[in-house]
Lab assay of single mutants.
Amino acid sequence: MQRVNMIMAESPGLITICLLGYLLSAECTVFLDHENANKILNRPKRYNSGKLEEFVQGNLERECMEEKCSFEEAREVFENTERTTEFWKQYVDGDQCESNPCLNGGSCKDDINSYECWCPFGFEGKNCELDVTCNIKNGRCEQFCKNSADNKVVCSCTEGYRLAENQKSCEPAVPFPCGRVSVSQTSKLTRAETVFPDVDYVNSTEAETILDNITQSTQSFNDFTRVVGGEDAKPGQFPWQVVLNGKVDAFCGGSIVNEKWIVTAAHCVETGVKITVVAGEHNIEETEHTEQKRNVIRIIPHHNYNAAINKYNHDIALLELDEPLVLNSYVTPICIADKEYTNIFLKFGSGYVSGWGRVFHKGRSALVLQYLRVPLVDRATCLRSTKFTIYNNMFCAGFHEGGRDSCQGDSGGPHVTEVEGTSFLTGIISWGEECAMKGKYGIYTKVSRYVNWIKEKTKLT
């Protein structure tokens, strides 16, 4: 034993070699072989497995989906700052455009905790909710729209109204504003409101030439003092309507412009014939205590009207009353817009006519005020429907199939267009061939041609 100890002390290297040989010859039971080890760690190889990531292109799944990435790591994937920024906006807080917040056709661009709407022409605001041009839906104005110097929408209202708090709607500024039905039992019968379409306001006024200088022999019209197929109006439903009495009662109609003036057809009036105007009328054979009678003290036909040349060209006249009318729910003026808007309103496509005229061709006159909704007829169809001249200051309205029309005794009465609950004068009943005849239409004086003249002559002093 002493000898062994001496050998170990003198030859430590020998001992180490012996131990190493023993270990190498022993069977290893701690580690699995290569094949079995792979069965336990069965993990798919990654895209760049075996390579240094710093030297390969980034992978979106590896960089940002398996674990949260930084902007720089995302930049490695896209290799483009702009594309990385677009991805980053949604990656950080989701897609803010998912709810489609942009209105009126706006395009949404996502941002971090926010979004941006790219608005089409005519709109602005956070969600493109603000109209900035009158060309689109009248700028959301209830009545009139004008573009300011910086191309912003400025709404306005006709006389007797003021802008509401929203700067879009119009509200009454006087007790009985024009064009409004205020009798409670008839307010439910107000005709369907007309909503502004998209309009090209630059070209809204037709490029028409008034044929002022045409000389033409007097034409022989049949029954051209021209509501057939209409309905009984309720008291106060058309408070701007008046009836004219002269040699015979209810020979023509008219509309209240203001307390002192009536507008009617020029062919209705004769110099030297006494005319009485009755406002607030409903049943011409009954006294309903809503009527107001006034005498006409002055007749002003349009300066281009000449019955000797043509009885229905420039067929418009103004009547001055001896005493002002007292405005109330049964006696209310009709609204008159400017030339541009009167023309736009007419193009809405349908209007209402009213009167006490004959209820059928050569038949009896109506006792109760009649009204009828009539569609506008395109000019080409209008011209083809008659052998008589249709001037540019006239328009056609009615039904091709016949059966409904204005008729004798309705002449001078109103053709009105309702705009968001307020009625505007767009025409004056003038003439036609018979009444409600198939293929024939009622012919009306186009008020847009005469609004400046009306307003100039009827100013209240």
Rank of each mutant, 00 (worst) to 15 (best):
G58P: 15
F196Y: 10
C28G: 12
F55Q: 15
L321R: 01
D150C: 04
G421H: 07
S430D: 02
I443G: 02
L425Q: 03
L52I: 15
K293F: 10
K137D: 12
W240C: 01
N127D: 06
E286P: 06
H282A: 08
D322M: 03
K247L: 07
L460H: 12
Q90T: 08
L372I: 14
E288Y: 05
G229H: 07
K347Q: 14
G357D: 11
K339L: 05
R373C: 03
A397Q: 01
D200W: 09
T194A: 11
K188P: 13
E79Q: 14
V56R: 08
N310P: 03
G403M: 14
L321P: 00
P101N: 03
G105I: 00
W118K: 15
A9F: 13
K274I: 06
L52G: 08
A279I: 00
L372C: 13
Y450Q: 00
N304I: 03
I17G: 02
S354P: 05
I112V: 13
V263N: 01
Y450C: 02
L460G: 07
T461S: 14
W431Y: 13
Y450N: 02
F176W: 07
Y22T: 07
E79Y: 11
L244R: 01
V269Q: 03
C252E: 00
Q219D: 08
L383W: 13
V4D: 07
K152F: 08
P12D: 05
F224G: 12
E420A: 14
E323N: 12
H303I: 05
D322C: 02
K152E: 06
E433V: 07
G160T: 09
T458H: 01
G253P: 07
T81N: 11
Q2I: 08
D405A: 08
Y115E: 02
T290A: 05
C141W: 00
R379W: 10
D212M: 08
H302R: 02
W88T: 15
T287Y: 10
G94S: 09
G58Q: 07
R43T: 15
V374G: 01
D322F: 02
P175T: 08
E76W: 09
I256Y: 01
V195H: 13
G230M: 07
Y391M: 14
G432E: 10
T342C: 03
L211I: 13
S423E: 03
R384W: 04
T389L: 12
V243W: 10
P197G: 09
F123Q: 03
M394R: 03
K109A: 06
G179I: 00
D212W: 10
S220P: 13
W356Y: 14
E66F: 04
V77L: 08
N100H: 09
S354M: 11
N452A: 13
V368I: 11
A192L: 13
G229Q: 13
E286T: 08
Y47C: 04
G236E: 03
N222T: 09
W431H: 13
V30F: 15
P12S: 13
Q185R: 10
Q237L: 09
A173M: 11
N104H: 10
H303N: 09
H289S: 13
L319E: 01
I299H: 06
I299S: 13
E79C: 04
D111C: 04
S448T: 05
D322V: 03
R373F: 04
Y22R: 03
